[in-house]
Design a protein around this nucleic acid. Structure first.
Lengths: 197, 197
DNA sequence: TCGCTGACAGATTTCAATATCTGTCAGACA
DNA sequence: TGTCTGACAGATATTGAAATCTGTCAGCGA
């Protein structure tokens, strides 16, 4: 038995991502995936119980990859305000880059986000936890001040939907966008900082 | 000539709103509107150059009506922080009420908002101006403090998209929504207030 | 035994023929 | 004269039959 042609979930995910990229979410079928792997489509169902689960698994991989730099920033050290700003700007630019470079995958993600799929909910929760990490670091450093770190992290996340939710992606290319982001970040930072004297 | 049956733009708008409510944006046609008014569809084109302009005019009326209470709050007097909070909460509850009571019109508005139509852009600009009015009142009262009132107003507007953009309407019914709104408003108010001593 | 195939039922999508709609305009009618 | 009609061309939407897809499973071959 040739090791290279064993059908693994990993190989299926790889092929599915290719197929999604090539055909787009609406056109891609499980049959296409099977054809790309040169197996019957029944075999794919041996590893993933449904097309939806396959789609979700691909999205999860994609989101986890996109999330990695943000985890690094949250886990890092240094002054919390700078890290929060960096985190937000990185989050925005990752999304913005994706929408340009990988539009079909982004459309997939948009469809998922609008369907309020579990994968996306989990991903959002993870994002909020990362923000909370930075905020609590800031509190420990004496530069931030707030009643409820978790709730404030959610609020920061909510306040920035416009720049990370794919439903607003068309707006990201507009020329006034960077200055609006600047104003928003400034407002949010002011909202969490301790009062200066 | 009977005054009651003269075909005016106003009557056409009235009928169009009814038709939109009854059939929804995707199904409603100019022929339906003409039928409701018992005239030929050609007559409608005498008052509105296209179906899109008719749709936009209806949306404008609808938006203006929805906007009225917000204008009152912005134009009023009293402490700016309370007014800002009231303004935001009113804006959210108007939208929330509309999505329940008038779902077809709301779907129309969603389609318009996603098409980035001019009416909606104008409406958003108006909203930002109202926020700016409250913010500059607050600065005059010595309770708010910011570099650029207009930019901050935009930032407040942007920060609250999640609760006024129709793309997020499904989220508004969730049980955790009110507490998330509370946290967001608290964060934004902290962001514009002068530092306490 | 274990992983894969291929045929199958029911659901969904495609496609092309048909019907309806949008926007225009010459002419009726008051 | 000014308002409205109704017929029209081209664009768009609907429809139903045929094709394809999803998900299952009995059985094949290693």
């Amino acid at each position: 038995m040739n090791e290279a042609v064993v059908l693994t979930p990993e190989r299926i995910l790889e092929a599915t991502e290719d197929v999604l990229r090539r055909y787009g979410l609406t056109k891609a079928t499980v049959v296409d995936v099977a054809r790309a792997l040169d197996v019957s489509h029944g075999s794919v169902y041996r590893h993933f119980p449904s097309k939806a689960s396959l789609r979700d698994a691909v999205a999860k991989r994609w989101l986890d990859r996109a999330n990695e730099p943000l985890c690094k920033i949250a886990a890092g050290s240094g002054p919390a305000p700078e890290r929060l700003e960096k985190w937000l700007r990185t989050a925005f630019s990752i999304k913005q880059k994706k929408v340009c470079d990988d539009p079909e995958m982004f459309a997939t993600y948009l469809a998922l986000a609008q369907g309020a799929r579990e994968v996306v909910e989990a991903y959002k929760d993870k994002q909020v936890d990362l923000i909370a990490k930075i905020l609590s670091d800031g509190v420990a450093q004496g530069v931030f001040e707030m009643d409820d770190v978790k709730a404030t992290a959610r609020a920061v996340f909510d306040a920035t939907v416009r720049y990370h939710h794919p439903a607003h992606a068309e707006e990201w290319a507009k020329p006034e966008c960077p200055s609006r982001i600047d104003a928003l970040i400034a407002l949010l930072l002011r909202g969490v900082r301790v009062c200066k004297h």
